[in-house]
Design a protein around this nucleic acid. Structure first.
Length: 263
DNA sequence: ATGGTTGCAGGGCAA
C-alpha cells in the first residue's frame, strides 16, 4: 500500500477553498497539511472537506496563521495542538497527529514556521527560538522509532540552489545563515529532506511572491519541506511539487508538495 | 520606481 502526504500553505482557506477542493478532488492525497488558514476553528469549512472523505483537525486563530491536518485514514490521536516549550506562545502554528496507515501508525506534524522578517529584530528572535523548540520536539519523536513526517512551510531556503537568485534574498530571514543552520540542525538529528533525497540537484520552487511578476519570471524559492524520520525516509517512493496550481486564478503564493510512501 | 501584491478587516499589519 502507499501513503501520500501533502503540504500546502493556502494563504487563507476562505479565499482558496475552490482551488483547494479542485486540487484535492484531482490528486486525492491521503493526508494533507494546510498552513495559513487565517481563520478560527469555528469558521473553517470542515464540511466541504469532510464531503471529500477527510477527517479534519484544525488549530486556528483570528486573521493570521492557523494550521489544519486532513486525513482520509483514521486519525488515532491528535498528539499536540501547539509546539511545546513556550506557554506564552499564542500563535497557531503546529498540530501533530498519529494516522492509522495500513502498515501501522504514522506520525504527521503540520508546521507553519515563523517568517522572521525583519531580521534582526524580535520577529527573527521568535523564529530562531521556535526552531529550537521544533528541534527539541523532533528529537523526542525519533525515540518512537516510527515513521514521522514533519510537513509544512518552514520559511527557510536551505541552499543557494533553492532560490532563483541568492543575492536577491541576501539578508532575508528565510536565508540567513542562522536560519539555515537551525534547519540543518534538525536534519542532523537524523531527518531527511524528502525533496533532496529523491531529487537533490533539481532547482524547484514552492513559493513565488505575488509582487513583481515573480511567477512569470520564475523568481521562486523552495521553503515548503517534508522532513522524514529514518523509518519514513526508507519508505519514500517519490516527491512532487505541483507548480501548475500557481498559474490558476486566485492562486496561493505557495504550491503543494507531496510525498508518496510505501506505508 | 521609497513602488510593487494579496488577505484580513475595514486601518494597518503580515507575508
Amino acid at each position: 500500500m502507499t501513503l501520500s502526504v501533502a503540504s500546502w500553505n493556502v494563504n487563507s482557506i476562505k479565499a482558496r477553498l475552490p482551488n483547494v477542493l479542485d486540487w484535492l478532488k484531482a490528486e486525492r492525497p491521503d493526508v494533507i497539511c494546510l498552513q495559513e488558514i487565517k481563520t478560527v476553528d469555528e469558521a473553517f469549512p470542515a464540511m466541504e472537506l469532510e464531503d471529500l472523505g477527510y477527517n479534519v483537525k484544525t488549530v486556528g486563530q483570528k486573521s493570521y496563521n492557523g494550521v489544519a491536518l486532513l486525513s482520509r485514514l483514521p486519525i488515532e490521536e491528535v498528539a499536540l495542538t501547539a509546539l511545546p516549550g513556550d506557554p506564552d506562545d499564542e500563535q497557531a502554528r503546529y498540530i501533530e497527529a498519529v494516522i492509522s496507515a495500513k502498515s501501522g501508525p504514522v506520525r504527521v506534524a503540520c508546521i507553519y514556521l515563523p517568517n522572521g522578517n525583519p531580521a534582526p529584530g524580535p520577529k527573527y528572535d521568535y523564529k530562531l527560538a521556535w526552531m529550537q523548540r521544533l528541534r527539541t520536539r523532533a528529537a523526542e519523536l525519533l525515540a518512537f522509532e516510527e515513521p514521522v513526517i514533519l510537513a509544512g512551510d518552514y520559511n527557510v531556503i536551505p541552499r543557494d540552489a533553492d532560490v532563483h537568485d541568492p543575492a536577491a534574498w541576501e539578508g532575508d530571514a528565510l536565508t540567513l545563515p542562522a536560519s539555515r543552520d537551525a534547519f540543518s540542525a534538525i536534519k542532523w538529528l537524523g531527518y531527511s529532506d524528502a525533496f533532496e533525497q529523491v531529487d537533490g540537484r533539481a532547482h524547484q520552487y514552492t513559493f513565488w511572491d505575488y509582487q513583481g511578476g515573480a511567477w512569470n519570471k520564475n523568481h521562486g524559492i523552495r521553503i515548503d519541506h517534508l522532513l522524514l524520520s529514518p523509518q519514513a525516509a526508507d519508505r519514500l517512493k517519490s516527491v512532487t511539487i505541483d507548480s501548475s496550481v500557481r498559474a490558476k486564478e486566485k492562486a496561493s503564493d505557495h504550491v503543494p508538495i507531496t510525498g508518496v510512501f510505501d506505508l
